[in-house]
């Protein structure tokens, strides 16, 4: 009996936390692939770091008054303050893990530089956590579906199109920049497998685990995209295809370049592109 009562509370909390992480990456991914943000972290003084943390916390309090990352909205002043503290911690943790993932923080990075980079990145990540629920959580019962989505192949086509459009929006803005070759130079080939795993996990989290979007109605649609695992895999493949197309269009990869460069650049750009693709499906 006690377990029966406890289980939903843990599951609700896990869902809330996953929603927060997904929101952080949705908003923070473009900043993650901006080297100037890392560089400024190299010479951000500790007092400035504290100021940034204070600004992030103040912004989170404002966002938590009307939204936040929890399915159940905070009401009391204490709840708003503690939820904002949690949101800041989630943003800092997400920023740290993602900077490690793309090789911007490693063992040789000085502590002050590492903290500067994390705290600079944590500001946009915090905003993402703060808007996680109210911006990306349309109610199931208000989501209207066009009639043509009743047909399986059309539903699948619509999801694939939304994924591709979302991936294009994100990857087209990142592909021409120097961040992709730079990140590629900072990580080893085996590390790409970890980036692939993280991309798949985030894509899954954003659309399914985090309860974003009109999930119930999405699952009631026919189509290949309506199974969580197949949707995650298919959307990742589409995001990779868009990534490699963008890299080729912007001449980051050419036919004569070695295969390892193609693979490395594509996987690295595929990480934010997948997040964009997931966001695209939410907007559908």
């Amino acid at each position: 009996m006690a377990n029966a009562k406890r289980q939903p509370a843990w599951k609700t909390e896990l869902d809330d936390l996953m929603r927060a992480v997904a929101g952080a990456f949705l908003f923070g991914a473009p900043f993650l692939y901006t080297m100037e943000v890392w560089w400024k972290g190299n010479f951000t003084s500790p007092p400035r770091m504290l100021l940034l943390l204070g600004i992030a916390y103040a912004a989170l309090i404002l966002l938590n008054l009307q939204g936040g990352f929890r399915g159940e909205r905070s009401k009391t002043r204490m709840r708003v303050m503690t939820d904002s503290l949690e949101a800041l911690a989630i943003a800092l943790l997400s920023a740290t893990l993602s900077l490690i993932l793309i090789g911007v923080i490693h063992l040789d990075t000085g502590l002050e530089a590492a903290m500067g980079r994390v705290i600079n990145e944590a500001l946009p990540f915090s905003l993402g956590v703060g808007i996680a629920d109210n911006v990306l959580h349309p109610d199931d019962d208000t989501a209207s579906e066009p009639d043509w989505q009743d047909q399986t192949w059309r539903g699948t086509f619509a999801d694939a199109g939304a994924t591709a459009l979302g991936a294009i929006v994100v990857s087209a803005s990142i592909a021409p920049t120097d961040e992709i070759p730079m990140i590629s130079s900072m990580i080893s080939v085996p590390w790409l497998l970890i980036i692939i795993a993280a991309s798949l996990l985030l894509s899954y989290l954003i659309v399914f685990q985090a309860s974003f979007g009109a999930q119930n109605s999405r699952r009631s649609q026919p189509g290949f995209f309506q199974s969580p695992i197949s949707e995650t895999l298919a959307s990742y493949l589409i995001s990779l295809l868009i990534s490699v197309l963008m890299l080729w269009i912007f001449q980051l990869v050419r036919l004569e370049d070695p295969g390892v460069q193609w693979v490395s650049y594509t996987v690295i750009l595929g990480f934010p592109a997948t997040i964009g693709g997931a966001a695209g499906r939410l907007a559908l």
Binding site: P46, L50, L111, I119
Partner: peptide
């Protein structure tokens, strides 16, 4: 989760103040 979050924040703020 709040306790873990507070511990993480305390660690981050502690490191920054220590660096300062």
């Amino acid at each position: 989760s709040l306790a873990i979050a507070l511990a993480l924040l305390a660690g981050v703020i502690g490191i920054v103040i220590s660096l300062w």
